[in-house]
C-alpha cells in the first residue's frame, strides 16, 4: 500500500485552524476535531499589518 492510501485508511486526526464553522461541520459528522482559535495578524487588515511592520523596523 502506498503512503497516500495508508493515510486514507487511518482514522482522521483533524486540527482546524481559524474558521470554527469548519470544525462544527466535522463534529456533526462525528469526526473528532481540535479547534485552534486563530486569526491572521491584525485580522488580515493590510494597513494595520504594514504599520506593525514599520514599528518593528529600525531606521
Amino acid at each position: 500500500m502506498n503512503r497516500i492510501d495508508r493515510l486514507f485508511s487511518q482514522d482522521l486526526k483533524v486540527i482546524n485552524i481559524g474558521l470554527e464553522s469548519f470544525s462544527k461541520d466535522l463534529k456533526k459528522q462525528e469526526v473528532s476535531v481540535v479547534q485552534l482559535d486563530w486569526k491572521p495578524r491584525a485580522g488580515g487588515n493590510a494597513k494595520l499589518s504594514s504599520l506593525l511592520d514599520r514599528l518593528k523596523s529600525n531606521k
Binding site: K39, R41, A42, G43, L48, L51, L52, L55
Partner: peptide, 8 residues
C-alpha cells in the same frame, strides 16, 4: 495596544 492590534 500593539498586542491588541496584532491579535484583534
Amino acid at each position: 495596544i500593539t498586542k491588541v492590534i496584532e491579535t484583534q
